[in-house]
Design a protein around this nucleic acid. Structure first.
Length: 92
DNA sequence: TATCTGACGATAG
DNA sequence: CCTATCGCCAGAT
């Protein structure tokens, strides 16, 4: 822990893993929770290449779903109890 | 060290 | 609703 590299993805992974069913958070939220406020982009990069993580529980700040996977993303969220509206997370 | 990329965020038009 | 631009950050080359 004395300046280890890759700490970022580790922290981000842990935060995402800590999310429960029906729990959705935005990239910026994940970055902040991980201890890297403002690193929303880096979070997206980790999620996009990392496998085994509940990426579907992560959405954009405006509730937008993942581009290119909106169909599957919406389907997964619906399966977890999260409602999706027009390619966006139902804030309701 | 410099440059580019990207599943971001916000604002503006 | 969509595109454009700026700012932000970590990782890859």
């Amino acid at each position: 822990m004395t300046g280890d590299t890759g700490q970022f993805e580790e922290a981000v992974t842990q935060v995402i893993e800590s999310l429960g069913p029906g729990d959705v958070a935005s990239y910026g939220d994940i970055a902040t929770e991980a201890g890297y406020p403002g690193a929303a982009r880096a979070v997206g990069n980790v999620l996009r290449q990392s496998s085994g993580l509940p990426w579907w529980r992560v959405v954009a700040a405006n509730g937008r779903l993942v581009p290119g996977n909106e169909a599957e993303h919406a389907q997964r969220l619906r399966a977890e109890g999260v409602k999706v509206r027009n390619g966006k997370v139902a804030v309701q």
